[in-house]
């Protein structure tokens, strides 16, 4: 028996080394894949590694990133919001429609955010109040609001202004602070705010608890329904702001524009989960996920990949990253 011990030790050592490797992969695989992709692109794609292009990527992901922040909180609380794109639409459309009625920029933006928040309250009522599963409740709202958007824009015609966009909105949608696009600044400020909510405010702690074990949280005295409701209202209001930025960028209200962001938003949160030690949705991770998706699209554009193949490649890369993370999780035991 003694003679066997060194062999056994070696085996255990090997096993531990392999486990440590997979632990590393599961924790940093997404980041590493992101870095590898960026390095490859900087060699093969002309103009990738320039300040101008990096700022372009950041601008392109800011709407996705902002929507992802709200979704991060909802998913951390154990839910999902399939109507988040429509909340963005409501924000943009309400804002532009009121501007067209002669409202000032400030009140119009606030009304857009309020419209988003109202949608969040509808989701919250259905989920926390009535008890419909989040997937189904927000799917229903998603479908209803899409239909309303079409009905109120005569079948999906964009809402244009018969005058110039007010200056503050031009600044929000297309302006720069120094070299940095305003919307990137907005993303950074909101990301910080969400980070604080998540890690330094009681709400963030409650959201995590509710997401991990709703019943145990309830039996610890947490008002679980109030917490859940808050995440949906916050997420919709945040998405509405993203919608306002989108509208300001194109100087018009585009019906059904937000829906295009839904899958990317969910993908960003899922990719972000892989970089957290506990596998939870987290603010930083979502930003990395959004940056990953934005960089893929940017790189393919620079490389002149046929447009119709771009989403295919994006989907394939996303599945690759998630498969790696899931494989590494089972390997590390």
């Amino acid at each position: 028996m003694d003679a066997k011990t060194p062999v056994a030790d070696q085996l255990i050592g090997k096993q531990q080394r392999s486990m440590r490797l997979w632990m590393f992969v599961s924790r940093y695989g997404t980041l590493a894949a992101f870095l590898v992709m960026a390095i490859v692109l900087s060699f093969v794609a002309p103009g990738f590694l320039t300040m101008f292009n990096i700022l372009t990527i950041l601008r392109q992901i800011s709407v996705l990133g902002i929507m992802g922040l709200g979704m991060t909180l909802v998913m951390a609380g154990g839910g999902i919001d399939l109507s988040i794109g429509e909340a963005a639409d409501v924000g943009g459309l309400v804002c532009v429609a009121l501007l067209a009625q002669g409202w000032g920029a400030g009140p119009a933006v606030l009304a857009g955010l309020a419209g988003g928040a109202a949608m969040g309250m509808l989701n919250a009522t259905l989920i926390a109040g009535i008890g419909i599963a989040p997937f189904l409740a927000t799917l229903g709202v998603h479908s209803m609001v899409r239909s309303l958007e079409m009905a109120f824009t005569r079948g999906g015609l964009p809402i244009y202004l018969n005058r110039a966009m007010p200056r503050p909105l031009i600044f929000l949608g297309r302006g720069l602070v120094g070299p940095i696009p305003t919307q990137v600044i907005v993303l950074a400020v909101l990301a910080l705010a969400y980070y604080v909510i998540y890690h330094r405010v009681t709400l963030g702690r409650y959201v995590t608890a509710v997401g991990l074990n709703r019943e145990a949280a309830r039996l610890s005295g947490v008002s679980v329904n109030k917490v859940t409701a808050t995440t949906y209202v916050l997420a919709s209001a945040t998405a509405a702001l993203a919608g306002v930025i989108l509208a300001a960028r194109v100087s018009s209200g585009q019906p059904l524009a937000g829906g295009a962001y839904l899958l990317d938003t969910i993908a960003a949160v899922f990719m972000g989960r892989t970089i957290s030690a506990e596998g939870r949705p987290n603010v930083l991770g979502t930003l990395v996920g959004a940056a990953f998706l934005g960089t893929v699209v940017n790189g393919m554009t620079l490389l002149n990949v046929v447009f119709y193949m771009q989403t295919f490649i994006k989907g394939a890369l996303l599945l690759g990253v998630l498969a790696l993370a899931s494989f590494a999780r089972t390997k590390r035991g």
Partner: peptide, 24 residues
Amino acid sequence: LVDMSVRENTTLASLKSFSSRGFL
């Protein structure tokens, strides 16, 4: 909550007394 830390579990029922105006 098995996937929360000892610390987070300990204060979950009394988080208000470990925060001011919502900030921990």
